[in-house]
Amino acid sequence: MKENYIEPITLLDTGFSKALDNFEGIDSYTVDGKEYLLLISDDNGDWNGEKQQTLLLNFKLLK
């Protein structure tokens, strides 16, 4: 049913970068009425951390 479709909002488009690892998890939390996102990456077993690491990034939503 096409009428149920609404254009989504893209919050962030980082572009291609070697700085970004393999992000697979996301969740949100609230502090003092402000909402935040946490993002976690899967190192795919690269325990030396040479190519992929376990990263945790934090973002504050403005809207």
């Binding site: 149920n4 479709y5 609404i6 989504p8 909002i9 893209t10 919050l11 962030l12 488009d13 980082t14 572009g15 291609f16 970068s17 070697k18 970004l20 690892d21 393999n22 992000f23 996301i26 996102l37 993002l39 190519k51 992929q52």
Partner: peptide
């Protein structure tokens, strides 16, 4: 190993 992440919002997608 070159990645791009895109956050998309809305429940109505």
């Amino acid at each position: 190993l070159i990645r791009q992440i895109v956050f998309v919002s809305y429940s109505s997608i």
